[in-house]
Nucleic acid binder design. Structure first.
Lengths: 224, 224
DNA sequence: AGTGGTCTTGTCCGCGCGGCCAACACTGCC
DNA sequence: GGCAGTGTTGGCCGCGCGGACAAGACCACT
């Protein structure tokens, strides 16, 4: 049924499918057979690429983390400091936040996931601290301890994402508003400085760029 | 094996066991047989009390929410406004936060859980807004919009709880410090006003008080 | 003492799971 | 043109699951 594929491409394809299903069903409920059906192959083939289910989901999450970091790095360059900060604080869009929330709940009982999550959070904090520092250097904000402020804002962004994505208590506009106002106040920025920057159009789905081979990796459609 | 029990007590016992297992294994992985073993009965008996697995976990979560609200109400009365605020903002302790985080990840695909979560969040926000209002009335803080401030602080508390409980990136002291400083600044309180209040000793485990019958419901031990 | 009700047990069923593996198909090398 | 090597298939296995149910144990009431 499925045509023979370059191993690297097939691997990427499986990882992308796994991520899509994790976002939909959660880590615990994704089965090898689900992934195989999503890719369009037999479940035995999945095991040809990943020895166990655990390794599969861990690899998928790791790919997501790497993709996220790469996307952050892309945003970092080419944006003015204030716009970069606004963009970072409003990363909220995209269904992949559900993967993150699911990872939080799995982390206490999955060491690999926990390690990836820790690394990601540390890197994100460091990145945000850098963005804050640049805003401060540009004279648009004040921060005695960018690292501490980054930690606080990361927590706020995560908590707001929960209220928006998981519970649906607030919409995206309000989510951004809450975070922006808190950041402006905390960093002593001009009120509205963040809100006024146009949020960059949200790129495609998290990670799974053509990576090495340049092959068009299948990516989740809104309806798929 | 298990002695015949008052139905209400047995029900509470099953719910408490379910909550314990959900905290340990997550909603998706708790099985009827797990719960039965935890209680010390046969898995058929669980189905005598709860028609389906879904109803069981939903009921367990609902009980947790009610218990939480009751505990919040207990705290509310009998504490000075500033101390009450500090207590609320530092609810972080206790393993039951893992249940909350897990509920966030399950909510998008479990309507009952989603409803319970929404209700709980709304009630919590309203409660916190009331606490803030009382602090303001007492002249210890300023808030133009207690409801909005409550929403922001709730998000911050949740995000900090993730960093502390799920990822272990920060310890409890730092979690409290982050939230307290942000609240003091945002509500224009005297710096350190919140940190200086002694946190109330954390009560027993979440909810599962003897409720009606006054029966000593089995409760998780740290080592169990 | 008998009776009805229900708490409790033990066992059975079909299903889907992760994992395993022998056979097939395709490709590139000699 | 044969011959590895490996991507791919499809079916098998044992297990634990949620669910179902008949029978037993115990209690309350008459």
């Amino acid at each position: 049924m499925a045509t023979r594929l370059d191993p690297a491409q097939r691997r990427e394809q499986i990882l992308a499918a796994t991520l899509r299903l994790v976002a939909r069903d959660g880590f615990a409920r994704v089965t090898l057979r689900d992934v195989a059906a999503e890719v369009g192959v037999v479940h035995g083939l999945i095991r040809h690429y990943f020895a166990t289910r655990e390794q599969l989901v861990a690899a998928a999450f790791d790919a997501a983390v790497l993709g996220e970091l790469r996307a952050d790095a892309e945003v970092e360059e080419g944006l003015e400091p204030v716009a970069a900060l606004a963009d970072w604080l409003s990363t909220t869009p995209r269904g992949h936040y559900l993967v993150w929330i699911d990872a939080w709940s799995e982390a206490p009982r999955n060491p690999e996931l926990h390690a990836a999550l820790t690394r990601h959070h540390r890197d994100s904090d460091r990145h945000l601290a850098g963005v804050i520092q640049r805003v401060v250097d540009a004279g648009h904000a004040t921060s005695a301890d960018p690292a501490a402020d980054a930690r606080m804002l990361t927590a706020l962004v995560d908590g707001v994402a929960v209220q928006h994505h998981a519970i649906g208590l607030i919409d995206e506009a309000e989510a951004d508003r809450i975070v922006f106002r808190a950041a402006e106040e905390h960093l002593k920025m001009q009120p509205g400085a963040l809100s006024r920057t146009r949020p960059t159009p949200t790129r495609g789905l998290w990670a799974t760029p053509p990576a090495a081979a340049g092959a068009p990796v299948a990516v989740a459609e809104p309806g798929d």
